[in-house]
């Protein structure tokens, strides 16, 4: 089993409260750009697509990490960066095809969604329910 944050684009208003809350909780400063999830408007402004870490089963970020700093929390399936081991090379940032692993340049550390120890602040703060916690099954061959 793994836990992910499921996104309902049709309910997203683009208010960025999820991102502002995430950055506030994780960094102490508010700025959607520092958040560990994205909200991407489509070109004509008709919708916003929230993009969250899928805690991939075949996690590219984990695969490419030369420091073996990325591991899986077996309880909820979250893919987690061990800050002590991470030396900020940025390979995981490049590897993430959803663009939700960030490099904290001043700290020289990679950052990604860790589901806030089971209670993601983005989900809690979303005013419309555009973000939901979903429990998924494992891979077919598990």
């Amino acid at each position: 089993m793994r836990t992910v944050i499921y996104t309902n684009f049709d309910l997203c208003t683009g208010c960025a409260i999820c991102q502002m809350s995430c950055s506030e909780y994780k960094t102490g400063g508010t700025n959607p750009r520092l958040a560990l999830l994205k909200v991407v408007p489509n070109a004509d402004g008709l919708i916003h697509q929230p993009v969250t870490c899928q805690q991939c089963q075949n996690a590219f970020c984990m695969k490419v990490c030369p420091a073996e700093a990325i591991y899986r929390n077996e309880e909820n399936g979250a893919v987690i960066i061990n800050e002590e081991k991470c030396h900020g090379c940025g390979l995981c940032v490049k590897a993430c095809q959803k663009d939700v692993v960030l490099l904290d340049k001043p700290a020289k550390k990679a950052r990604k969604c860790d589901l806030c120890a089971g209670e993601p602040v983005c989900v809690k703060s979303c005013p419309t329910g555009a973000l939901e916690i979903a429990k998924l099954g494992g891979a077919k061959d598990e």
Binding site: C15, A16, G45
Partner: peptide, 9 residues
């Protein structure tokens, strides 16, 4: 659908 400004519920 509904649209919001930054930080506004």
């Amino acid at each position: 659908r509904s649209e919001a400004c930054a930080g506004c519920p």
